[in-house]
Design a protein around this nucleic acid. Structure first.
Lengths: 216, 216
DNA sequence: TTTTTATTTAGACTAAATATAAATAATAGG
DNA sequence: CCTATTATTTATATTTAGTCTAAATAAAAA
């Protein structure tokens, strides 16, 4: 069937309000066909494989969110749809992760109707679209970093110790908790600070909060 | 029961998705009449004074959110409507502030349709309703506190030092910055910890972040 | 004025952290 | 399988940071 070819959109968000707000948005404009707005991930993924969406829209902070592995699977299965994240609470790491696996567009839920519509169309064409807030966020947060999106890599043990530090535990408590020598904790912390270019335990804790390594 | 009298609801949220999701929610159920779902605060407040809402629903993290002063003004003007906050990113202080000025119900945007409907009805009757997430939050966060919602009052100097600590400055740097003796800084910090019942500089920094004394 | 609260400081002492060095454990690459 | 690398662990000696006790000064409240 020729006629005017509407863009097929599929949506996944655990928030009721967002699902219905989105439903209203895309159906009202008349330019799109909404395949569905899903709360359940399994059902959502099944429908993607049955229908042929041009654009996949999702909130990556949903309860049982899409992972980058999910996205890659979708990409592999067919001609890749465009991906658009509509969310709040963007975290640097998460944005990077999804950018790396090919998600084109990111907007916040605070964005205007027009901006969201623009983002959908951009995603359909495989173009990038970041709303100002996301953009600001990326620029701001990637200030101190070098080239890539990843912060200097910490080992699992180092991250563990960083987290506990940010929880307010001192070196001794961490040592007790992890059954380590106090010296070990100091050494790890020293290495963390070296890798992240920090100069005190306070800065380390600050880093953990600013970079969402612990929840606020 | 006057079966025909629908509850009048008015809604204020800067997020497009939420406004439309909410619109759908309340109109679909047939139990309510939605006076309007507003993006603009002035317009919203004007409409409240013109119409007679039974329930006022709003997101207190909106761009130009309702203040507790606004709420009080609405309360004074007429028989008080019920108030329901639908939001994410609850902060302890904000919840307390709005509870103090008489807001009955709090739910998150992640709540189910049914829960939101329950909350609306509770607000209309002047009853309290907290969703589980908000409840958890309140219980968790008010653990270490005494009676009131306010954290133990710190002096201006103490807050100043708390902030600088959270920024990652050590005692010496704070002393230099404020032209104080190192001992003075230690004393202030000791007093802060005593007042807040904290036992280390790390916990102090954690406290600052958890309580939004510094921005994340 | 007297009392309380806030702010400031010091000396003696204690706990925490660093620098340096190095030994295992685990892992990746050939 | 062996080896180079990385991760994890620990210790000693030394330095630095922080606490305890005590108290002076200033400002604000009673």
């Amino acid at each position: 069937m020729k006629a005017l070819k509407k863009l097929n959109i599929i949506h996944y968000d655990s928030e009721f309000l967002s699902r219905n707000g989105f439903k209203y948005l895309v159906t009202d404009s008349g330019e799109f066909r909404l395949i569905g707005s899903f709360e359940d991930k399994a059902e959502f993924l099944k429908t993607i494989n049955a229908e042929y969406p041009n654009v996949v829209v999702f909130d990556f902070t949903s309860k049982d969110s899409l992972t980058s592995a999910d996205i890659e699977k979708i990409r592999e299965a067919r001609k890749s749809p465009g991906f658009l994240v509509i969310s709040n609470n963007f975290k640097k790491e998460t944005i990077c992760e999804f950018m790396d696996c090919g998600v084109e567009c990111f907007v916040t839920k605070a964005c205007s109707k027009d901006e969201i519509l623009l983002a959908i169309k951009a995603a359909a064409k495989g173009e990038r679209f970041f709303c100002n807030k996301v953009l600001e966020f990326i620029i701001d947060k990637s200030f101190q970093k070098k080239e890539d999106c990843e912060p200097t890599k910490l080992t699992t043990r180092e991250i563990e110790i960083l987290k506990l530090s940010a929880e307010g535990l001192d070196a001794k408590e961490i040592a007790d908790k992890l059954f380590l020598s106090l010296h070990t904790v100091y050494t790890h912390r020293k290495n963390i600070m070296k890798k992240l270019n920090l100069k005190s335990n306070s800065e380390l804790i600050k880093y953990a909060y600013k970079n969402n390594i612990v929840s606020t």
